[in-house]
Design a protein around this nucleic acid. Structure first.
Length: 434
DNA sequence: TCTGGGGTCCTAGGACCC
DNA sequence: TCTGGGGTCCTAGGACCC
């Protein structure tokens, strides 16, 4: 079966550009939370040698010298663009899987190879017209091959954004010979080193290797990659990935934090947001973990990582119960005498909220009949008035631990006129800024 | 001075059982 | 000195991804 990976080009930078067309041709960089790291670059910014993931302070001088426009990330807006792109893509394929915020796998049963490129070009043109976002497509028999083709479609402009990997062995092998083993999807630094030590230097080498041998030194993960490179699909295009298995909310602080009360505010805020995500998905959690970290980049400071878990019995989505458990876990995780830089809350053992057994009277954890109504009211208010309009008092008032995000484009979903016209796309749910 | 956040899957090893 | 052989389940941590 023919499959495709559609991936937005420089997604966040492209979003900013749609919102402000005067940015076309101008180098753009989008920064992570806290304005800490570079997480997206326009092609002009890449050409200036600004690396992905670079700390902003390291590239600031380069940016200033070349008039690079800098943006704090605005995930609410990017999420809205993502919905539009996904809606458009999904119309073109029978099988559709939204893989990440800016990527989707497509499946086309009964599509002859000969028609693939024309199809890819049509999809690309349609998404661009309807959303303003340029996408590239890699097309092949398997997901791993699609991924490699997509990367080549992006990096080599002669392909005009669409590359089809031939399904015959010779054509495929010729392509795979041009892909280094470390550039294969799923092969990270560790696996790449092991592959090289067994003489596998290119994707073609891995495709030609004996699967049993590959399994021996790289497990089923490596074996599946090898099979996919030969055109044997191990990963289907699945519409419904199933319910999520964990929820995490974490942030770096704007500065170092030692004070327990201040840590507790941050942890309560993360716990409340995590509980909110849980309710958005109709799930409850049976346990949580709180973690706190010192600044690993400060070799002059004592290092410590604290992780403590706490059961949630009965499983719950109640912000109050989750904040209380998080506070208990934090008290155990924290050690005196360290400067912390980051805190987070993880919820795990998630199950659908509607199949949880009601608590038995007298065994603890009695049901709170007002809980659901209270949480629904809080969620409704926050949807209308903006995130954290109503929140637990334990999440603090001064909130000196918060990081900065000073360079937002100012584009707002409260101002839908600034978004691209998308006549054929269902109007997206309007969400508020974080 | 300043260094992101949120996931999934697999494996190894221990606890426990018959 | 010699000291079974499987199983399953769970967890922590590694590896990788966007």
């Amino acid at each position: 079966m023919l499959r495709a990976l559609a991936d937005c080009n420089n997604f966040y930078a492209s979003c900013e550009r749609v919102l402000d067309p005067s940015l076309v041709g101008v180098p753009i960089v989008v920064l992570s939370n806290n304005d800490g790291c570079v997480i997206a670059r326009s092609s002009e910014a890449k050409a200036l040698g600004i690396p992905m993931g670079a700390p902003y302070f390291e590239v600031r001088r380069t940016c200033e010298a070349h008039g690079v426009r800098i943006f704090s990330s605005n995930f609410a807006v990017y999420g809205d663009f993502s919905e539009r792109v996904m809606t458009a893509l999904a119309e073109h394929a029978r099988d559709f899987e939204a893989y990440s915020v800016d990527e989707a796998f497509l499946g086309f049963p009964d599509m002859p190879d000969a028609d693939a490129r024309a199809l890819g070009l049509r999809i690309r043109a349609d998404v661009l017209k309807r959303t303003g976002i340029p996408v590239s497509l890699g097309m092949a028999a398997t997901k791993v091959l699609c991924k490699l083709a997509n990367e080549r479609a992006k990096s080599d402009r002669s392909h005009e954004g669409v590359l089809v990997v031939p399904s015959d062995v010779d054509g495929r092998t010729a392509f795979l010979r041009t892909v280094g083993i470390e550039d294969v999807w799923g092969v990270g630094p560790g696996l790449a080193a092991r592959m090289r030590s067994h003489g596998l230097l290119t994707a073609a080498d891995l495709a030609a290797a004996d699967p049993g041998l590959v399994r021996g030194f790289s497990g089923v993960v490596g074996e599946r990659i090898a099979l996919e490179l030969r055109g044997t699909a191990c990963h289907e295009v699945v519409e419904d990935a199933g319910p999520r298995k964990s929820v995490m909310v974490s942030r770096s602080f704007g500065r170092g934090v030692s004070d327990l009360d201040e840590l507790a505010e941050a942890v309560a805020a993360h716990a409340a947001r995590a509980a909110e995500k849980l309710r958005e998905d109709g799930l409850v959690a049976a346990s949580l973990t709180v973690f706190i970290r010192t600044n690993k980049h400060r070799s002059d400071q004592a290092q410590y990582r604290g992780d403590e878990s706490e059961p949630l019995d009965p499983p719950t989505d109640d912000a109050r119960a989750i904040c209380a458990a998080a506070a208990r876990a934090l008290a155990r995780a924290r050690r005196e005498g360290y400067v912390y830089k980051r805190a987070g809350v993880l919820l795990h053992d998630l199950t659908p909220a509607d199949v949880v057994q009601p608590a038995l009277p007298g065994l603890g954890g009695e049901a709170d009949p007002g809980k659901d109504r209270l949480m629904k009211a809080v969620d409704a208010l926050n949807r209308r008035l903006g995130r954290e309009a109503v929140r637990p008092a334990s999440t603090g008032f001064e909130r000196a631990w918060k990081g900065k995000s000073e360079l937002k484009s100012g584009a707002s979903l409260n101002d839908p006129e600034r978004l691209p016209k998308a006549k054929d796309v269902p109007k997206p749910r309007i969400r508020f800024h974080e």
